[in-house]
Design a protein around this nucleic acid. Structure first.
Lengths: 107, 107
DNA sequence: GACAGATATAAGACTGTCGAAATATAGTCC
DNA sequence: GGACTATATTTCGACAGTCTTATATCTGTC
Protein backbone atom coordinates (compact mmCIF):
# COMPACT_ATOMS: atom_id res chain seq x y z
CA UNK A 1 0.00 0.00 0.00
CA UNK A 2 1.47 3.35 -1.01
CA UNK A 3 0.43 6.93 -0.38
CA UNK A 4 -1.55 7.25 -3.61
CA UNK A 5 -3.55 4.15 -2.80
CA UNK A 6 -4.05 5.29 0.78
CA UNK A 7 -5.52 8.56 -0.47
CA UNK A 8 -7.77 6.77 -2.94
CA UNK A 9 -10.23 5.90 -0.17
CA UNK A 10 -12.76 8.65 0.59
CA UNK A 11 -13.08 7.60 4.23
CA UNK A 12 -9.35 7.93 4.77
CA UNK A 13 -9.35 11.37 3.14
CA UNK A 14 -12.24 12.36 5.39
CA UNK A 15 -10.29 11.23 8.42
CA UNK A 16 -7.31 13.29 7.35
CA UNK A 17 -9.68 16.21 6.86
CA UNK A 18 -10.80 15.78 10.45
CA UNK A 19 -7.20 16.10 11.55
CA UNK A 20 -6.60 19.40 9.78
CA UNK A 21 -7.54 21.41 12.86
CA UNK A 22 -5.22 19.46 15.12
CA UNK A 23 -4.72 16.10 16.69
CA UNK A 24 -7.71 13.92 17.54
CA UNK A 25 -8.25 10.77 19.55
CA UNK A 26 -9.12 7.62 17.62
CA UNK A 27 -12.51 7.61 19.28
CA UNK A 28 -13.26 11.13 18.15
CA UNK A 29 -12.36 10.14 14.60
CA UNK A 30 -14.66 7.15 14.84
CA UNK A 31 -17.53 9.42 15.91
CA UNK A 32 -16.77 11.69 12.97
CA UNK A 33 -17.42 8.74 10.66
CA UNK A 34 -20.80 7.51 11.92
CA UNK A 35 -21.23 5.21 8.95
CA UNK A 36 -18.11 3.26 9.93
CA UNK A 37 -17.65 0.83 12.79
CA UNK A 38 -14.88 1.34 15.30
CA UNK A 39 -12.74 -1.50 13.91
CA UNK A 40 -13.11 -0.11 10.41
CA UNK A 41 -11.79 3.24 11.58
CA UNK A 42 -8.94 1.54 13.39
CA UNK A 43 -7.99 -0.35 10.24
CA UNK A 44 -7.99 2.83 8.18
CA UNK A 45 -5.82 4.49 10.78
CA UNK A 46 -3.43 1.58 10.51
CA UNK A 47 -3.14 2.14 6.77
CA UNK A 48 -2.55 5.85 7.26
CA UNK A 49 0.09 5.01 9.85
CA UNK A 50 1.85 2.51 7.60
CA UNK A 51 2.24 4.97 4.74
CA UNK A 52 3.34 7.70 7.16
CA UNK A 53 0.40 10.04 6.67
CA UNK A 54 -0.35 10.12 10.40
CA UNK A 55 1.53 9.58 13.63
CA UNK A 56 0.28 8.45 17.00
CA UNK A 57 0.87 9.72 20.50
CA UNK A 58 -0.27 7.61 23.42
CA UNK A 59 -2.20 9.64 26.00
CA UNK A 60 -3.50 7.47 28.79
CA UNK A 61 -5.95 5.04 27.32
CA UNK A 62 -6.39 7.17 24.21
CA UNK A 63 -4.30 7.34 21.05
CA UNK A 64 -3.97 10.84 19.71
CA UNK A 65 -3.49 10.99 15.95
CA UNK A 66 -1.93 13.86 14.03
CA UNK A 67 -1.19 14.42 10.36
CA UNK A 68 2.28 14.07 8.90
CA UNK A 69 2.16 16.27 5.80
CA UNK A 70 5.68 15.27 4.76
CA UNK A 71 4.21 11.99 3.55
CA UNK A 72 2.45 13.98 0.84
CA UNK A 73 5.73 14.97 -0.79
CA UNK A 74 5.59 12.12 -3.26
CA UNK A 75 2.14 13.19 -4.36
CA UNK A 76 3.27 16.79 -4.54
CA UNK A 77 6.23 15.90 -6.70
CA UNK A 78 4.09 13.93 -9.09
CA UNK A 79 1.50 16.68 -9.30
CA UNK A 80 4.08 19.36 -9.91
CA UNK A 81 5.19 17.68 -13.10
CA UNK A 82 1.62 17.35 -14.28
CA UNK A 83 0.74 20.93 -13.57
CA UNK A 84 3.26 22.81 -15.66
CA UNK A 85 0.57 25.21 -16.79
CA UNK A 86 0.45 26.37 -13.17
CA UNK A 87 0.35 30.08 -13.86
CA UNK A 88 -2.53 29.73 -16.23
CA UNK A 89 -4.57 27.52 -13.96
CA UNK A 90 -4.01 29.26 -10.64
CA UNK A 91 -6.93 31.59 -11.13
CA UNK A 92 -9.49 28.83 -11.52
CA UNK A 93 -7.95 27.01 -8.58
CA UNK A 94 -8.09 30.04 -6.34
CA UNK A 95 -11.65 30.73 -7.40
CA UNK A 96 -12.64 27.22 -6.38
CA UNK A 97 -10.87 27.63 -3.06
CA UNK A 98 -12.59 30.88 -2.22
CA UNK A 99 -15.99 29.65 -3.34
CA UNK A 100 -15.79 26.38 -1.45
CA UNK A 101 -14.45 27.59 1.89
CA UNK A 102 -15.69 31.18 2.18
CA UNK A 103 -18.50 30.35 4.63
CA UNK A 104 -16.04 28.93 7.12
CA UNK A 105 -13.81 32.00 7.21
CA UNK A 106 -16.05 35.00 7.83
CA UNK A 107 -15.88 37.12 11.04
CA UNK B 1 -14.12 5.46 -10.14
CA UNK B 2 -12.90 8.95 -9.23
CA UNK B 3 -9.70 10.83 -9.94
CA UNK B 4 -8.01 9.77 -6.70
CA UNK B 5 -8.68 6.12 -7.43
CA UNK B 6 -7.57 6.52 -11.03
CA UNK B 7 -4.24 7.94 -9.84
CA UNK B 8 -3.81 5.13 -7.33
CA UNK B 9 -2.62 2.77 -10.07
CA UNK B 10 1.10 3.04 -10.87
CA UNK B 11 0.56 1.99 -14.48
CA UNK B 12 -1.93 4.77 -15.05
CA UNK B 13 0.43 7.29 -13.49
CA UNK B 14 3.20 6.01 -15.74
CA UNK B 15 0.96 6.46 -18.75
CA UNK B 16 0.23 10.03 -17.75
CA UNK B 17 3.96 10.54 -17.31
CA UNK B 18 4.44 9.39 -20.89
CA UNK B 19 2.04 12.07 -22.02
CA UNK B 20 3.88 14.93 -20.32
CA UNK B 21 5.91 15.67 -23.43
CA UNK B 22 2.86 15.81 -25.67
CA UNK B 23 0.18 13.66 -27.17
CA UNK B 24 0.83 10.01 -27.95
CA UNK B 25 -0.97 7.32 -29.89
CA UNK B 26 -2.48 4.46 -27.90
CA UNK B 27 -0.03 2.10 -29.55
CA UNK B 28 2.95 4.18 -28.48
CA UNK B 29 1.67 4.13 -24.92
CA UNK B 30 1.30 0.36 -25.11
CA UNK B 31 4.92 0.05 -26.20
CA UNK B 32 5.96 2.27 -23.32
CA UNK B 33 4.43 -0.29 -20.96
CA UNK B 34 6.02 -3.54 -22.18
CA UNK B 35 4.80 -5.44 -19.15
CA UNK B 36 1.18 -4.75 -20.09
CA UNK B 37 -0.84 -6.25 -22.89
CA UNK B 38 -2.53 -4.02 -25.46
CA UNK B 39 -6.01 -4.61 -24.01
CA UNK B 40 -4.76 -3.77 -20.54
CA UNK B 41 -3.43 -0.44 -21.80
CA UNK B 42 -6.71 0.24 -23.56
CA UNK B 43 -8.62 -0.43 -20.36
CA UNK B 44 -6.43 1.93 -18.37
CA UNK B 45 -6.91 4.57 -21.05
CA UNK B 46 -10.64 4.09 -20.71
CA UNK B 47 -10.42 4.75 -16.99
CA UNK B 48 -8.32 7.85 -17.55
CA UNK B 49 -10.85 9.01 -20.13
CA UNK B 50 -13.81 8.43 -17.84
CA UNK B 51 -12.38 10.54 -15.03
CA UNK B 52 -11.35 13.24 -17.49
CA UNK B 53 -7.60 12.93 -17.03
CA UNK B 54 -7.03 12.44 -20.77
CA UNK B 55 -8.81 13.27 -23.98
CA UNK B 56 -8.72 11.53 -27.32
CA UNK B 57 -8.32 12.81 -30.83
CA UNK B 58 -8.99 10.45 -33.70
CA UNK B 59 -6.25 10.56 -36.32
CA UNK B 60 -6.86 8.01 -39.06
CA UNK B 61 -6.70 4.61 -37.47
CA UNK B 62 -4.85 5.94 -34.47
CA UNK B 63 -6.20 7.54 -31.32
CA UNK B 64 -4.02 10.34 -30.06
CA UNK B 65 -4.21 10.83 -26.30
CA UNK B 66 -3.35 14.01 -24.45
CA UNK B 67 -3.47 14.99 -20.81
CA UNK B 68 -6.23 17.12 -19.36
CA UNK B 69 -4.62 18.70 -16.29
CA UNK B 70 -7.87 20.39 -15.27
CA UNK B 71 -9.03 17.03 -13.97
CA UNK B 72 -6.35 17.33 -11.30
CA UNK B 73 -8.04 20.31 -9.71
CA UNK B 74 -9.87 18.17 -7.17
CA UNK B 75 -6.60 16.64 -6.09
CA UNK B 76 -4.98 20.05 -5.99
CA UNK B 77 -7.72 21.45 -3.82
CA UNK B 78 -7.48 18.60 -1.40
CA UNK B 79 -3.71 18.82 -1.21
CA UNK B 80 -3.75 22.57 -0.65
CA UNK B 81 -5.72 22.15 2.54
CA UNK B 82 -3.31 19.51 3.74
CA UNK B 83 -0.25 21.53 2.99
CA UNK B 84 -0.86 24.68 4.97
CA UNK B 85 2.71 24.62 6.20
CA UNK B 86 3.64 25.33 2.59
CA UNK B 87 6.28 27.94 3.29
CA UNK B 88 8.06 25.67 5.73
CA UNK B 89 8.03 22.64 3.49
CA UNK B 90 8.86 24.26 0.17
CA UNK B 91 12.58 23.94 0.73
CA UNK B 92 12.49 20.19 1.18
CA UNK B 93 10.20 19.88 -1.79
CA UNK B 94 12.42 21.95 -4.03
CA UNK B 95 15.44 20.02 -2.89
CA UNK B 96 13.75 16.79 -3.90
CA UNK B 97 12.81 18.27 -7.25
CA UNK B 98 16.33 19.42 -8.05
CA UNK B 99 17.93 16.22 -6.86
CA UNK B 100 15.55 13.95 -8.77
CA UNK B 101 15.47 15.74 -12.11
CA UNK B 102 18.82 17.49 -12.34
CA UNK B 103 20.35 14.96 -14.77
CA UNK B 104 17.63 15.64 -17.30
CA UNK B 105 18.08 19.39 -17.35
CA UNK B 106 21.81 20.04 -17.86
CA UNK B 107 23.17 22.00 -20.86
C1' DG C 1 -6.83 -7.58 41.36
C1' DA C 2 -11.57 -6.94 39.13
C1' DC C 3 -13.90 -3.93 36.18
C1' DA C 4 -14.80 -0.48 32.58
C1' DG C 5 -13.35 2.31 28.69
C1' DA C 6 -10.58 2.90 24.54
C1' DT C 7 -8.30 0.90 20.89
C1' DA C 8 -6.27 -2.79 18.23
C1' DT C 9 -6.26 -7.31 16.00
C1' DA C 10 -8.19 -11.76 13.84
C1' DA C 11 -11.16 -14.17 10.87
C1' DG C 12 -14.45 -14.42 7.39
C1' DA C 13 -17.62 -12.75 3.61
C1' DC C 14 -18.24 -9.53 0.04
C1' DT C 15 -16.96 -6.52 -3.53
C1' DG C 16 -14.30 -4.38 -6.92
C1' DT C 17 -10.16 -4.16 -9.68
C1' DC C 18 -6.46 -5.97 -12.62
C1' DG C 19 -4.79 -8.51 -16.26
C1' DA C 20 -5.07 -12.17 -20.11
C1' DA C 21 -7.33 -14.18 -23.93
C1' DA C 22 -10.50 -13.96 -27.31
C1' DT C 23 -13.40 -11.20 -30.02
C1' DA C 24 -15.26 -7.07 -32.12
C1' DT C 25 -14.95 -2.54 -34.39
C1' DA C 26 -13.03 0.84 -37.39
C1' DG C 27 -9.80 2.74 -40.65
C1' DT C 28 -6.39 2.01 -44.60
C1' DC C 29 -4.58 0.04 -48.69
C1' DC C 30 -4.85 -2.94 -52.53
C1' DG D 1 -14.85 -6.00 -51.27
C1' DG D 2 -10.81 -8.43 -48.81
C1' DA D 3 -6.58 -8.26 -46.17
C1' DC D 4 -4.21 -5.77 -42.70
C1' DT D 5 -3.33 -2.61 -38.83
C1' DA D 6 -4.78 -0.13 -34.71
C1' DT D 7 -7.71 0.11 -30.95
C1' DA D 8 -11.65 -1.09 -28.12
C1' DT D 9 -14.75 -4.33 -25.72
C1' DT D 10 -16.15 -8.58 -23.45
C1' DT D 11 -15.47 -12.35 -20.46
C1' DC D 12 -13.33 -14.69 -16.98
C1' DG D 13 -10.28 -15.94 -13.04
C1' DA D 14 -7.28 -14.29 -9.43
C1' DC D 15 -6.25 -11.21 -6.08
C1' DA D 16 -6.51 -7.17 -2.95
C1' DG D 17 -9.13 -4.03 -0.28
C1' DT D 18 -12.99 -3.15 2.90
C1' DC D 19 -16.46 -4.14 6.03
C1' DT D 20 -18.54 -6.78 10.16
C1' DT D 21 -18.42 -9.67 14.21
C1' DA D 22 -15.93 -11.38 17.82
C1' DT D 23 -11.96 -11.18 20.68
C1' DA D 24 -7.66 -9.40 22.60
C1' DT D 25 -4.74 -5.69 24.67
C1' DC D 26 -3.80 -1.88 27.32
C1' DT D 27 -4.86 1.90 30.75
C1' DG D 28 -6.96 3.97 34.57
C1' DT D 29 -10.17 3.44 38.64
C1' DC D 30 -12.18 1.39 42.51
Amino acid sequence: MDVFLALADPNRRAMLDELVDGEQAAGALAKACPHLSQPAVSQHLKVLREVGLVEVRVDGQRRMYRRQPAALDDVDLWLLRHRNQWAGRLDALEHHLVTDTAEGIGP
